[in-house]
């Protein structure tokens, strides 16, 4: 194994950034981890870090960690830097840094001498934790979702993340494929599973304001999605998002492409303010955006 060189090499790394809430980053990345071994594409730019994972051309997820979430963020690369790595390893490594009771700040660097992603705890001179994660030349993501709204008004609803998660969890019993139908009159979202039995879950907009917070739909749309993909979008919503009553936005685009957006807080508990690189001080703005795209099943379309 090649040992890392002793001193800093001459050419400075493209990215040096520091994050003071590792647990939030672990939460955000874990929410797109639906299986143990998952390859991810990491994209670095001036604006922040984007991590993309996908499965069988039907499910894609992105985690947006914008630069404002970091305590320090120096990007010196040209344009966008892309590399592949194992999501599971990244999460396991970051987890090592987030020991309870330790408010460690973690420095992230790329590339290392051997093109690794380097993590290092900073702040304590007498103890240090570090990780070097091997990266790969990126696979080209086989499909990039061109999400477009179908028609003039987007067909969308917003629900509490916990409600959506519970709904999808309940649909496990019929399993296989799930129909999502949105209808304007009466304004309702209907999840219907047909497999080992039928199960229909209705979320009526007017019945309970707690259920659907926003509802926008001018015509009836209905598409079917594989249950395992739907489940991947909600199964790992971090408990922090549920506790903080975060909302999830669901949009159905052209051709039935489903977009699901979660918000995950990267605020440090017990610390109302923090200093980020933009000089911002509000913890509430420290949100990572998570997006899932799910392709509908092909044998079914608008009813």
């Amino acid at each position: 194994m090649s040992s890392p060189p002793s001193a800093r090499d001459d050419d400075a790394p493209d990215l040096v950034c520091q994050i003071d809430c590792v647990q939030g980053m672990v939460d955000a990345l874990s929410s797109v981890r639906w299986k143990r071994h998952q390859d991810a594409l990491m994209e670095l730019s001036l604006h922040g870090i984007v991590l993309t994972v996908e499965e069988s051309g039907c499910l894609q997820a992105k985690v947006f960690l914008k630069r404002e979430l970091f305590v320090e963020y120096d990007y010196a690369g040209d344009g966008r830097q892309r590399f592949g790595l194992s999501l599971g390893l990244l999460v396991d490594c970051l987890n090592t840094f987030s020991a309870p009771g330790q408010a460690a700040t973690v420095e992230i660097r790329y590339p290392g001498p051997d093109m690794q992603l380097l993590l290092k705890s900073v702040g304590s001179p007498d103890s240090c934790l570090y990780a070097e994660i091997r990266t790969r030349i990126p696979d080209t993501i086989s499909w990039d979702c061109h999400f477009e709204h179908d028609g003039n008004t987007p067909v969308t609803f917003t629900a509490k993340s916990a409600v959506l998660k519970e709904t999808v969890d309940d649909l496990e019993w019929p399993g296989s494929s799930i129909q999502i139908r949105m209808q304007p009159d009466p304004p309702t979202v209907i999840f219907k599973g047909e497999g080992h039995g039928d199960l229909q879950i209705e979320l009526p907009y007017y019945a309970n304001t707690d259920l659907l917070i926003v509802f926008q739909c001018d015509r009836e749309v209905s598409y079917r999605y594989k249950y395992k993909f739907l489940r991947a979008t909600t199964s790992n919503i971090p408990t922090s998002a549920v506790k903080e009553n975060r909302r999830t936005k669901v949009t159905i685009g052209r051709g039935g492409m489903l977009k699901i957006q979660h918000l995950v807080s990267l605020a440090r508990p017990g610390m109302p303010y923090f200093r980020n690189i933009g000089g911002g001080t509000e913890q509430t703005s420290r949100i990572a955006h998570i997006e899932f795209f799910v392709k509908p099943e092909e044998d079914d379309n608008d009813s």
Binding site: M1, S86, S127, C128, L129, Y130, A131, I133, R134
Partner: peptide, 14 residues
């Protein structure tokens, strides 16, 4: 701990 894909370590000094 070192594998072909990752190295994670911790150092306690002094």
């Amino acid at each position: 701990v070192s594998t072909s894909l990752v190295t994670v370590g911790s150092e306690f000094r002094k």
